[in-house]
Design a protein around this nucleic acid. Sequence first.
DNA 1: AGGGTTGATGTAAGCGTTTACATATGCCTA
DNA 2: TAGGCATATGTAAACGCTTACATCAACCCT
Lengths: 337, 337
Amino acid sequence: MATIAQVALFAGVSTATVSRALNKPDVVDEKTKAKVREAVDALGYRPNQVARGLASRSSRTVGVVINRFDSAYYGQMMQGAEKGLRSVGYKTIAESTCEHADGERAAWNSLLDRQCEAIILHADALSDDELRELYKARRNTVLMNRYHPDFADRCVYLDNIKGGQLAGEYLLSKGHRSIATITGPSSYYEARDRLTGLRQSLANAGIELDPALVEEGNFRDDMGFTCMNRLIDSGKTLSAVFCQSDEMAAGALDACRQRGVRVPEDISVLGFDGLDLAYHLTPKLTTVRQPLREIGEAAGLLAYAVATKSTDHSDIKRIFAAEVVERSSVRDLNDGS
Amino acid sequence: MATIAQVALFAGVSTATVSRALNKPDVVDEKTKAKVREAVDALGYRPNQVARGLASRSSRTVGVVINRFDSAYYGQMMQGAEKGLRSVGYKTIAESTCEHADGERAAWNSLLDRQCEAIILHADALSDDELRELYKARRNTVLMNRYHPDFADRCVYLDNIKGGQLAGEYLLSKGHRSIATITGPSSYYEARDRLTGLRQSLANAGIELDPALVEEGNFRDDMGFTCMNRLIDSGKTLSAVFCQSDEMAAGALDACRQRGVRVPEDISVLGFDGLDLAYHLTPKLTTVRQPLREIGEAAGLLAYAVATKSTDHSDIKRIFAAEVVERSSVRDLNDGS
DNA sequence: AGGGTTGATGTAAGCGTTTACATATGCCTA
DNA sequence: TAGGCATATGTAAACGCTTACATCAACCCT
């Protein structure tokens, strides 16, 4: 609770000298520094970072606005972002929005009011147009795991098209030809991209994705359940279904179990995300993993670069690639032949 | 980026009046307020919360130090805490520590330097003695889901003894008599308490817990796997095992599957925590749920009370009760008789 | 010896607010 | 009409730092 003035008094120097001794040690005399150190220790002085921020107009803080904390998906990105920021001495002030556009806007504003030097936004609800407005108003926003064409250099994201391709190629490589998919909402570009990627990979193999085999879900497990049931009811032959999220895959697995279809013997199921959840499912889910922690960390680093106005941040990775984590929910059809 | 001085100039009043118009509207004239409002709108003025905090010496911020964000367990508490804090207009500045005592101490200090008015600590690594020191130094710390006898009124936590009892009583009610348990590390009071509770409930039914049937795990799934194997290998008869975490239960389920013991036909498995994970396991795991979001929210509210030095916070719930969430991993032995 | 460097420190003006205190105006009452 | 009291506003001093600028001493060079 001691102030810099008290330290200065104790050490018999001016506050400016104390400040310099602490912040730019090379410009102050060794003996003076010793006196200051002594005073600091004696008084248990710790600089008030808020005052420091006000005076130096740099809060060393960035805001994170995120849908929610209590899901592994967001949690991993949050973890990565905070880690990245912490590694450069920045603090993370976090706000959840419960998937509400008003919440996202309000959080963005109030974090700026707190003098956050940059904002990491995981915007689910805000439209591209609104994001453009925000970005115009204050150019210090970083989009985490979302791509926006107008400020691509402020986006850290997964290449979803490649992710979809990877899913398709993997299934193809295991001998699957009749492939179904349960997508996310078509209003999400992630969902569209993954579908596009899947289509492309099939097309490369001369296969067209049967429209009757694509069900639109919402990334959540109950829709995985519903869509899988629809797929089964359709009576179409299908050997594999690619779910655009692990949660939907979990629902799909439940549906299969209830209907007596065995996974992977009768139908193979491939997930997407690579959450811990996938590991705990039965059968253990083969899935396309997004490197969420890495994406979060990169977003943190990019936010730091933005905050410090460092012009060159070409060293920060912004586009990430998915990878398949092979477990036991996809059958290798080549084996049996 | 407008400052209060510019607003004052624009409105033709003093900065003090602008400040009052914004913060205590009832003491300023209606016409003046209108002028101020106009100026605020015209200039797009938004008060600098950092400066405001410095001047009024209240940052309206509390710090949360937590092990990590990327697990459902911590995520839920984090979600609750942030929600509680947000509901009273406070910001959450969060730091993860990766289960490291140094990290917890460093985070605690640096958050205080940032003028957090209270700290919510989920301390895993810090010992009771160290916590006592911290608390002595600054009495504005709240312990989230941890109990410390020396400052019980600053703790929000689950009644783990009752939780253990509940587990025992539930198993008993389903007709189980040979009960095994896989505990957390005995260095954790939670683990000891849950075990105590289990013992008590069995004792009430005239049963003594067989020491050979208690395995010490570490709350994580690999140890659940290992311990379950040991239990099976022991050759002892047991009809149910109570795992002190859902993760360990997941591991235990895996072990059973590998060894060909059916759950719940051959052995029943009861979890603890009530994470989403439990729902996705096969069979769906019956578990003793801790209300983690509620605990987090209460911690947030208590932190607020501490921050505002409100003397009476008897309305804030501090001790929470677990509840069993019934699913399909525990067999009802009464049925078959 | 005088002028120019260099290095170390002090002085004081911010940073953008809040707030105690002073001042001014109008109104009521005796 | 003077005194007292509200009410509304302004003045200026904080809050705890940083930092541009001024100052001063010591040293070096010609």
